[in-house]
Design a protein around this nucleic acid. Structure first.
Ligand SMILES: NC(=O)c1ccc[n+]([C@@H]2O[C@H](COP(=O)([O-])OP(=O)(O)OC[C@H]3O[C@@H](n4cnc5c(N)ncnc54)[C@H](O)[C@@H]3O)[C@@H](O)[C@H]2O)c1
Ligand SMILES: NC(=O)c1ccc[n+]([C@@H]2O[C@H](COP(=O)([O-])OP(=O)(O)OC[C@H]3O[C@@H](n4cnc5c(N)ncnc54)[C@H](O)[C@@H]3O)[C@@H](O)[C@H]2O)c1
Lengths: 214, 214
DNA sequence: ACGTTTTTGTGATTTTAATCACATTTAAAA
DNA sequence: TTTTAAATGTGATTAAAATCACAAAAACGT
């Protein structure tokens, strides 16, 4: 099995665009149109599909429905995935309050925090004390967790999650988590993403100045 | 000038780790230690530095202070960057309430929203009506903005930001923004990041099953 | 029915990024 | 001082990803 993060990201994007096209009433699509919509070349689109055994019709493009069906299964959209969020601070709260995941088969089912003040079992999405994580995860067979605790606590909370048999973690703490080989860790470093923008804005500016002066 | 997003991300990470080492009282570091801390090879570390004209001492490693000095200027940390957040919903609120950016020279100075109920000029970080964005950005020479409005509004708000002369946007809406060449757009697709985790957890599971059965 | 046009599918090629591997330098030990 | 051991710095190599380019298929017009 190919384990290439970038191709999966593209698949996610293809899917999103295809859903929109489908909503607009279209039933087929060409690689160049899809590529344009996602920002990649048509060859990239065809190769991505080809490598995953997805084929279209010469001259007729791809059937959107077929593509969506394949992407559904590749991306694991054929079942609902239950997710817990650990750390109900600024970010954790934003995530559990966001309602857009549901329609994508991602259901945030519970939050956990170490602060008793954050606990509230009557929320739309209940928030429990961290101590209950292990039990909850085992009983409900949760495989995916979001980690949104302060950096200093992140590794220890990660360990707890791993011990509870969570198999995939989306991490927002600005540290590199250590976890067993069979646990998937995907970290989003928000500060770094912002720094990236700043860097390129600076770089652009310098380039332009140089251009003007030359 | 090299414009490689990945190398800049690594620089951000090097910097973060180096700050920690410095706090711990260390003054020099070897490429293999830094590499381990960030999760890359020592050769990668040396090449990154070498390509940017940063050199250490044969056998003596790198002076942390020197490295930090260079990284500071490469990453534009030598001045404070003012940032505005547009869309004070779940995510926007999380960002303006987060206090960790400040110590990295990133200062969120104002929020903007179209909903009058979100406007509050007496906040620690004041929130204004979207109509005031243009004036504020021009008067305060803001170059960087965060976009956290609903997907459907994102492109039009992006246009307003670009018109106001914002040069870099960190975008959280799940669409590909169209903007002029000289505007830096960096998009964080949170849903996709979560889907990525789900995909790899699924992939792992299938692989293991196959392993067991073989 | 038949040629034209359009689009796929993919091997070949190019580009980009990462790793290797080793000559070179130098800090520390003997 | 001399030796030894340990790092760097970088050209060469390998690996990975993207693009090219074109044969093959098939929808469409005439
Ligand atoms: N909010 C942002 O905009 C932002 C930006 C960049 C990075 N981050 C990162 O995201 C993470 C979370 O940020 P935040 O702003 O939501 O932080 P926060 O301080 O608002 O929330 C953290 C939450 O985790 C809880 N917590 C603390 N220790 C815990 C533990 N051991 N177990 C369970 N819960 C625990 C706290 O009670 C709190 O509710 C941090 O690592 C931060 O570096 C956040
Ligand atoms: N919150 C999450 O966890 C999450 C997860 C995945 C993706 N996202 C994406 O992030 C973006 C923001 O998400 P959110 O949960 O914060 O949304 P939200 O609905 O909570 O907040 C959106 C805010 O934008 C404001 N707004 C609407 N139209 C506007 C306009 N034209 N100009 C200025 N402000 C406007 C609204 O008043 C609201 O305050 C969305 O595009 C969403 O797809 C969020």
């Amino acid at each position: 099995m190919l384990v290439n993060k970038k191709i999966i990201s593209r698949f996610s994007q293809y899917r999103e665009v295809l859903l929109k096209f489908q909503e607009m009433g279209l039933s087929k699509i060409f690689s160049n149109v899809l590529g344009d919509a996602v920002g990649v070349t048509s060859a990239q689109v065809r190769k991505d599909f080809s490598l995953h055994g997805i084929s279209g019709n010469k001259r007729g493009g791809y059937q959107i429905e077929d593509l969506l069906h394949e992407l559904r299964s590749i991306l694991g959209k054929d079942k609902v995935h239950h997710v817990v969020v650990v750390g109900i601070g600024n970010l954790g709260r934003a995530l559990i309050q966001y309602t857009g995941f549901d329609k994508e088969g991602i259901q945030i089912v519970a939050g956990f925090d170490i602060d008793p003040a954050k606990v509230n079992k009557r929320n739309r999405i209940p928030v429990y004390h961290l101590d209950e994580l292990n039990k909850y995860v085992c009983e409900n067979q949760i495989q995916i967790g979001v980690l949104a605790v302060p950096d200093a606590a992140a590794q220890s909370v990660c360990n707890i999650m791993v011990d509870s048999d969570i198999k995939g973690i989306l991490n927002f703490a600005q540290i590199r988590l250590i976890a067993p080989e069979d646990v998937v860790i995907n970290s989003v470093f928000l500060q770094m993403e912002l720094e990236n923008v700043i860097y390129f804005v600076n770089a652009m500016e310098n380039k332009c100045t140089r251009c003007r002066s030359s």
